[in-house]
Design a protein around this nucleic acid. Structure first.
Length: 842
RNA sequence: GGGCGUUUAGCUCAGUUGGCUAGAGCACUGCCCUUACAAGGCAGGGGUCGGCGGUUCGAGUCCGUCAACGCCCACCA
C-alpha cells in the first residue's frame, strides 16, 4: 500500500471520523461462531441512565475498554455488550420531576393522555400504565445521551449487543430466574417487619441502607412500678411510648436483675408491660434499661422476635401515626393518643415531650445528641419499620451453610486489586437477613405471581399461582393466570395478581444471563458464560457483585465470571469524592470538547486499578500532547519512503539495538496487561516512546536523510518501531493510532495483532549500543545547554571516557553519534565514564 | 467501635519479588525556530519517601506502633 501522509496532521475530528468508520465496518462486532475458549467476555456494568453523567462514569468504562482492546488484539473474540439500567426508582423519580406527575395505581389507563409541556406543580396523578409509558419514553432519550458519550469516548462495544434492564429479554430473564428460585425454595415470601421508606412507600433491602448522622435527643422517661416508684429509661423516640411492649435489661445487670419478671406501667398510657432480659441490652447505654417498641429500630425487631412479644404498631406506611386509637389504649390513654394521632413521627415526638413534661414523667430537659440513623440511600427521611408481606431470596444471611458457600465463591473469584475481596467477605459475614427483593413501586419487572382467593374471600399467599415460562414476561395486574378469566380478579374463588415489582438489583443481578441471552439463545450463552471479567465500582460490591454471585450460584452452580476488576473512586480536583449532594460533580462533555477524547482516556488509564484518582486536567494535557506527538513522530518515521521497506535492510547496530530496547518494552507492557494493569502498560509504552523520540530518532536522523543502504536500515527500523508503538498505544489512544495506521495500512489497527517479542527475532542487537550513544549525545546536549548555545552548534571534538565495553559499543554507532552531536570527531579514552566536549577550536 | 485503602518534589502521581547518587509530568529557571513536532524541543533547580521504633550488610519497599485523610461495615435505647 502506498503511504499517504498529511502535511499537517491534526487531532481535530478524529473521534467522529473513526467512530463512523468502525460503525460502518463493524470493527467491534462480535463473531458468535467462536467457541468459549476463543472468546473474552465482559459483563459490562449497565449505567443508571436516569443518573447524572459525570467523570466517574467515564473513568471505569475507559479502563475496561483499554483492556478489551488489548484482548481483542491478542487474538480473542471480545464479547463486549452494553446495557442500560433504566429499571427502578431512579427512573420513576426522574419522570416525576421531569414531567410533574405522580403515579396513582387506582386510576384507569388513558390512552390519549400526553404529558404537560411544562412540569406540572402540583404533580398530576396518572395511571400506572401511563406512568410506566413515560418511564419508557424518557429512558430511551437518556440512553441516547449515554450512547453518544460512549461512542465519543471510543468504547469498543458491540452496539448490536445492547440491552436495557426493563426490556423484553431482561424481564423474561428476571421472571424466569425468580420462578426457578421459587421452585427450588430459594425464594419465599414472609409477612414480617421490614425497613420502610415512608416517602417512596416501599420496603428497602439491607444493601440499600446507609447511616447518616442526625441530631436527636435522649429523653429520660419514667415508667412506674406497681408501688409507684419511677423506673427511668432513656429514649430518642418518646413518640413510641404508646407502642412499648416491654422494658429490657441485660440479664447480668445487677441493677435491674431483681426486677426481671415484674411489670411496670407506661407513662401517660398506663399500659402494663413486663421487664425482660436479653444480652443485646447494653448496660452502658442510657440508663441500662431500654424500652422495646414495635418497632423503633432493628433491635426492637430482634427482641420482639426472640422474646416473643406482642405487636403494638402505630406507624403507618406513610410515616404517620395511625388516626384511630389503637385497641390496647382506652380511657385517658385514648385521649392522650388523640394528641399525637395522624402526626409524623418527628411531630409526635415533640408533642409527646410536652405531654410527658406536663405529666411529670420527663426527667429534666431532653439531652441533644448526634446519632447514626438509617436511611434508604436514595431517601430523605429516616426509615421506619412497617410490617408487610414481602418476597425474599436466600443469600446466606440466615443460613450458615449457604453463607459458607457464598464466602467460598468470594475466595474463588480473582479480584483485581486483590484487597477488594475483603469487602465482599465482610459484607457476606455481616449479613443479618435474606435479600428482600419486592418493592411497592411501579416501574420495574413484576413479580410474576398470582394468589388464589378462597371462597370466603381470603387471599392465600402461601400457594402462589405461577405462569408458564413461555408466557413470560407477564404483568399479573393485567394478565390472567392459566385457568382463570379476568372477571375472577379479586373475587371469592378467583385470584389476585401480585402488585409489586422486583428491586432493580433482582434484575441486574442477572446481567450475564441477560447479555448472554440465557432465556432465548442458549447457544450464545454457552459461548460467553461464565464471563471473563466483571468490571465495576467498589461501592456496589455489596449489591451488584454479591447479588450476581448469588443468582449464578443458585442457577448455574458456579461463579458468573473468573475475575472482578474493581475501579477506584473519582475525586474532584480538591480530592473530595464527587457526589451530587456536594454539588461538585463534573460532567465529561465539556472536558472532552476541551482536551479531546483521547486526553480524557489517557487520564482515566493513568489511574491505577482500584486506586482513587483525582480529576486532573494537567494529566489530560499530557495525554493530548502525547497524541500530537504520535502524529508528528509518525510523519517523520514514515516520511522517507512511499512504500514499506524490507526488514532485511535493518543491519546497523544502533537500529538493531533500538529494537532490542523496544522488545523489552513490549514484554513489560504485555505482562502488565495480563495482570489487568492497563496503567502500567500505558506507562511502559509512553516512557519507551518518549525515549525513542528523544534519543533514537535524534541519533538516526542524520543517517536517515543521507540515503543509501545505511539509511534504508534506519527507514526500516523506524517503520518497524512505529508499527509496534501504534499497537502498544492502540488500547489507550484508539483514534490517533487508527489515523496513523490508515496512512500506510489497510485494515484497522484494532484488529492488528498485539506486538509480540518474537516479532523482533533476528532484528536485535545489544541494547547497550543505543544506551551509550544516548548518554554521549545527552552529555553533548548538556554542554551546549550550559554554553547557552543552539543544539545545532557544531562540536569540534568529543572525548568519551569509558570502559572497554562502553567504548566498543559507542564505536559501533560512531557515525550516528557524530551526526546527532554535530561533531567532527570523537576520541576514546579508557576510564570512569565521562564525556568531554569541545565546542569550538581552542 | 471494627475493617480496607491512602500518605513519596509546591501540585498530580510512578516506584513489580528490599540493592548502586529516589523517578515522571505539571509548575518554576535557563537556553534553542536543530529539515516530525514552538499549543514544541533541550538542559536545570527542587524530596528528613507521614511520625516513632524494629529486622537487615542494606528499608520508600518487610515488621510493630501512632497520626491524618478517604471509603466500607456496625444494635437509632
Amino acid at each position: 500500500m502506498t503511504r499517504n501522509i498529511p502535511e499537517k496532521p491534526s487531532l481535530e475530528g478524529l473521534e467522529s471520523k473513526w467512530g463512523a468508520v468502525w460503525e460502518e465496518d463493524g470493527t467491534f462486532r462480535f463473531d458468535r461462531t467462536k467457541t468459549r475458549d476463543e472468546i473474552f467476555s465482559i459483563d459490562t456494568p449497565p449505567p443508571t441512565v436516569s443518573g447524572s453523567l459525570h467523570m466517574g462514569s467515564v473513568f471505569g468504562y475507559v479502563q475496561t475498554d483499554a483492556h478489551a482492546r488489548y484482548r481483542r488484539m491478542s487474538g480473542k473474540e471480545v464479547f463486549y455488550p452494553m446495557g442500560w439500567d433504566d429499571n427502578g426508582l431512579p427512573t420513576e423519580r426522574r419522570v416525576q420531576n421531569y414531567y410533574g406527575v405522580k403515579c396513582d395505581p387506582s386510576l384507569p389507563y388513558d390512552p390519549d393522555w400526553t404529558p404537560p409541556a411544562e412540569p406540572s406543580d402540583p404533580p398530576v396523578a396518572i395511571s400506572r400504565r401511563n406512568f410506566v409509558d413515560l418511564c419508557h419514553g424518557l429512558t430511551q432519550e437518556d440512553e441516547k445521551v449515554f450512547e453518544d458519550l460512549w461512542r465519543t469516548m471510543g468504547l469498543s462495544v458491540d452496539w448490536t449487543q445492547t440491552y436495557a434492564t426493563i426490556d423484553h429479554v431482561s424481564q423474561r430473564t428476571s421472571q424466569k430466574a425468580f420462578l426457578e428460585n421459587l421452585a427450588r425454595g430459594e425464594a419465599y415470601s414472609q409477612d414480617a417487619p421490614v425497613l420502610w421508606d415512608i416517602d417512596f412507600q416501599t420496603a428497602v433491602a439491607q444493601a440499600e441502607l446507609e447511616e447518616r448522622d442526625r441530631g436527636g435527643a435522649y429523653h429520660r422517661v419514667a415508667f412506674h412500678r406497681p408501688d409507684g416508684t419511677p423506673l427511668y429509661i432513656e429514649t430518642t423516640r418518646p413518640e413510641l411510648v404508646c407502642s412499648c411492649v416491654a422494658l429490657v435489661a441485660h440479664p447480668e445487670d445487677d441493677r435491674y436483675q431483681p426486677l426481671i419478671g415484674s411489670t411496670v406501667t407506661s407513662p401517660l398510657f398506663g399500659v402494663e408491660v413486663p421487664i425482660v432480659a436479653h444480652e443485646l441490652a447494653d448496660p452502658e447505654k442510657g440508663t441500662g434499661i431500654a424500652m422495646i417498641c414495635t418497632f423503633g429500630d432493628t433491635n426492637d425487631v430482634t427482641w420482639w422476635r426472640e422474646l416473643d412479644l406482642p405487636t403494638r404498631a402505630v406507624i403507618q406506611a406513610d410515616g404517620r401515626l395511625q388516626e384511630t386509637v389503637p385497641d390496647w389504649l382506652s380511657g385517658h390513654a385514648a385521649d392522650v393518643y388523640s394528641e399525637i394521632a395522624g402526626l409524623f413521627a418527628n411531630q409526635a415526638r415533640r408533642r409527646m415531650a410536652e405531654l410527658l413534661t406536663e405529666a411529670g414523667d420527663l426527667d429534666g430537659e431532653p439531652r441533644e445528641i448526634m446519632h447514626p440513623v438509617k436511611f434508604y440511600e436514595k431517601g430523605d427521611r429516616p426509615l421506619e419499620i412497617v410490617t408487610s408481606r414481602q418476597w425474599y431470596i436466600r443469600n446466606g444471611g440466615r443460613e450458615d451453610e449457604l453463607r459458607k458457600e457464598l464466602l467460598a465463591r468470594g475466595e474463588e473469584l480473582h479480584w483485581v486489586p486483590d484487597f477488594m475481596g475483603v469487602r465482599y467477605r465482610h459484607w457476606v459475614e455481616g449479613l443479618n437477613g435474606d435479600w428482600l427483593i419486592s418493592r411497592q413501586r411501579y416501574f420495574g419487572v413484576a413479580i410474576p405471581l398470582w394468589y388464589p382467593v378462597s371462597d370466603a374471600g381470603q387471599v392465600d399467599y402461601e400457594s402462589p399461582i405461577t405462569p408458564d415460562f413461555d408466557s413470560l414476561p407477564i404483568d399479573p395486574t393485567s394478565h390472567v393466570p392459566p385457568g382463570f378469566d379476568e372477571s375472577q380478579r379479586g373475587q371469592p374463588g378467583g385470584f389476585v395478581g401480585d402488585p409489586d415489582i422486583m428491586d432493580t438489583w433482582a434484575t441486574s443481578s442477572l446481567t450475564p444471563q441477560i447479555a448472554g441471552h440465557w432465556v432465548d439463545d442458549i447457544d450464545l450463552f454457552q459461548r460467553v458464560f461464565p464471563m471473563d471479567i466483571r468490571p465495576q465500582g467498589p461501592e456496589i460490591i455489596r449489591t451488584w457483585l454479591f447479588s450476581t454471585t448469588v443468582r449464578s450460584h443458585f442457577e448455574h452452580g458456579e461463579l458468573p465470571w473468573h475475575t472482578a476488576t474493581i475501579n477506584g473512586w473519582i475525586l474532584d480536583p480538591d480530592r473530595k469524592k464527587m457526589s451530587k449532594s456536594k454539588g461538585n460533580v463534573i460532567t465529561p462533555m465539556p472536558l472532552i470538547e476541551e482536551y479531546g477524547a483521547e486526553a480524557v482516556r489517557y487520564w482515566a488509564c493513568n489511574g491505577r486499578p482500584g486506586v482513587d484518582t483525582a480529576l486532573d486536567m494537567g494529566v489530560m494535557k499530557i495525554g493530548r500532547r502525547l497524541a500530537i506527538k504520535v502524529l508528528n513522530a509518525s510523519r517523520f518515521a514514515l516520511g522517507f519512503s512511499d512504500v514499506d521497506v524490507d526488514e532485511s535492510a535493518i543491519n546497523m547496530p544502533l537500529d538493531r539495538s533500538m529494537l532490542a530496547v523496544l522488545a523489552q518494552a513490549v514484554s513489560t507492557a504485555t505482562s502488565a496487561f495480563e495482570a489487568f494493569d492497563y496503567a502500567r502498560a500505558l506507562e511502559t509504552a509512553e516512557r519507551s516512546f518518549w525515549e525513542w523520540t528523544d534519543d533514537y530518532v535524534e541519533l538516526v536522523k542524520t543517517r536517515a536523510y543521507e540515503g543509501g543502504p545505511d539509511a534504508e536500515s534506519a527507514h526500516a527500523a523506524l517503520q518497524v518501531a512505529l508499527s509496534v508503538y501504534l499497537r502498544l498505544f492502540a488500547p489507550f489512544l484508539p483514534f490517533v493510532t487508527e489515523e496513523v495506521w490508515s496512512w500506510w495500512r489497510e485494515a484497522s489497527v484494532h484488529k492488528a495483532s498485539w506486538p509480540r517479542v518474537d516479532e523482533f527475532a533476528g532484528l536485535t542487537d545489544d541494547a547497550a549500543v543505543l544506551e551509550i550513544a544516548s548518554r554521549v549525545v545527552g552529555e553533548v546536549r548538556r554542554a551546549k545547554s550550559d554554553a547557552k548555545t543552539s543544539m545545532a552548534t557544531e562540536v569540534t571534538r568529543v572525548t568519551l571516557i569509558g570502559s572497554a565495553e562502553e567504548v566498543e559499543n559507542a564505536k559501533r554507532a560512531e557515525d550516528d553519534i557524530l551526526g546527532a552531536a554535530r561533531a567532527k570527531s570523537i576520541q576514546y579514552v579508557e576510564g570512569e565514564f565521562a564525556v568531554e566536549v569541545v565546542l569550538v577550536e581552542q
